[in-house]
Design a protein around this nucleic acid. Structure first.
Lengths: 237, 237
DNA sequence: GTTTTTAAAAATCTCGAGAAAAAACGTTGA
DNA sequence: TCAACGTTTTTTCTCGAGATTTTTAAAAAC
């Protein structure tokens, strides 16, 4: 039986330095919206919240620039990266393009172990979806959803494609969460995932990429149709 | 007449902080190969070379992780990102895919100002090529080549596509320079650029992307065919 | 009442020293 | 001769304090 890291690199190696710890905590707070878009990130104030020194926090913020979750303009400090509908549209389009290509390659290259991983990831996701009904256990579902998408393209040999996709996925997750409070669950995501999984297993690249593209675009449309005043209220918060 | 920043963001805003200064100096030294691939980057040693404090240098190194020019493994310091033929192949393929798509969009969206910018960038590149004969003024040509490629896709509306491409271009430049000492000038790059420029001006997206794709791939092939022992010698240096 | 100037306050940026970890080295034992 | 162990050395990581710069606020001038 395949081990749990058959997909490649370790899922989430535990942080060994304070910089890494602060980096993860900050990233989580930005993606989950606890630190609002555009908000100023005062080092002197934040170092107490995260329990590290000023230099350490600065370094963590520098790392977050890689992920485009933090922006800095020299001599004027750090800010949480701003959000906009236009940006999310760009993220969606770029992601569709890259993720469909990666999926196509993954379907071509994937071996038996990949099929197994995919089946397992889908199963875990399904379980999380069942559990989620009623309870507000979003975190676990989010994580398993991420892994499902990751496994789908894991057989793609291009490290760079996967690297860029991980950044875009993070960005998209951020927008999804910001809109979460405005829109409950508008569509049957489970059915989409199932169809996607089956098309991939059947090695039908055309069908799989079509479903995946629509799957990603739907998330954007569900946010796009939110009245602008509500959205801006959220973006400005 | 259009100002010199009609393409969008400022070309190279001068650095205002020491972190930014150290970041650029380090980036340049890595891309140009003065800091060899895989080399250990000892903060205590480097802070003297670049004339900054230890914390400042650490921050600069953290920023270089964004560009994938530096890697770090917790508690074991920083290293120059390693290189490999496989990695360069991946960079090439991914870049062809993204840059052709960006060029297609740019050709569709580009207005008169874009055409003007493109013509100007090509002209400057040509001048640099003429000057370069005999003299070893590679730096200026490199910069103008970069700008030419940047202007080509500048009318593409996707910020993310352009962001990823700027990273890939940097990476490719690094490989190109590493191989520079092994291979002089194997092909007529000027003719390729000219054909590319003309196809773009004629709004022939199919032709332009075909030329661009081949243009990028040729750089890879010219390095690929270098005997492995010579290459590894360079990579290990 | 608006604008400009000036001064105080806040925040950023920078540095060097101390604690923790990893690597190097020599010693000891089989 | 080789391997394992413990000490020394090196390097990384972390923190708090000081120097610039930006921002804020108030006072003066038009």
């Amino acid at each position: 039986m395949a081990n749990n890291t058959s997909s490649g690199n370790s899922p989430t190696a535990e942080p060994k330095t304070l910089v890494e710890t602060a980096y993860r905590a900050l990233r989580r707070d930005i993606i989950e919206g606890h630190l609002a878009p555009g908000e100023k990130l005062r080092v002197e104030h934040l170092k107490d919240d995260y329990g590290v020194g000023a230099g350490t926090l600065r370094e963590a913020l520098s790392l977050l620039i890689s992920d485009a979750l933090v922006v800095s303009q020299g001599q004027r400090g750090f800010r949480v990266a701003p959000v906009s509908l236009e940006d999310f549209g760009d993220i969606t389009q770029t992601r569709v393009m890259l993720e469909c290509e990666a999926l196509r390659q993954s379907i071509t290259m994937g071996d038996d172990a990949w099929e197994g991983d995919l089946l397992a990831a889908f199963h875990r996701l399904t379980k999380a979806e069942e559990k989620r009904i009623g309870t507000d256990d979003r975190e676990e579902w989010e994580e398993r959803n991420r892994i499902f998408h990751e496994v789908l393209i894991s057989a793609c040999p291009s490290r760079w494609l996967k690297h860029f996709l991980s950044i875009l996925y993070q960005q998209a997750e951020r927008y999804r969460r910001l809109s979460l409070y405005l829109q409950p669950i508008p569509r049957d995501i489970h059915a989409e995932h199932e169809a996607l999984m089956q098309a991939a297993m059947a090695r039908d690249a055309d069908k799989a990429t079509a479903i995946l593209g629509e799957h990603i675009r739907l998330t954007f449309r569900s946010i796009e149709q939110i009245p602008k005043d509500q959205l801006n209220e959220k973006l400005a918060a």
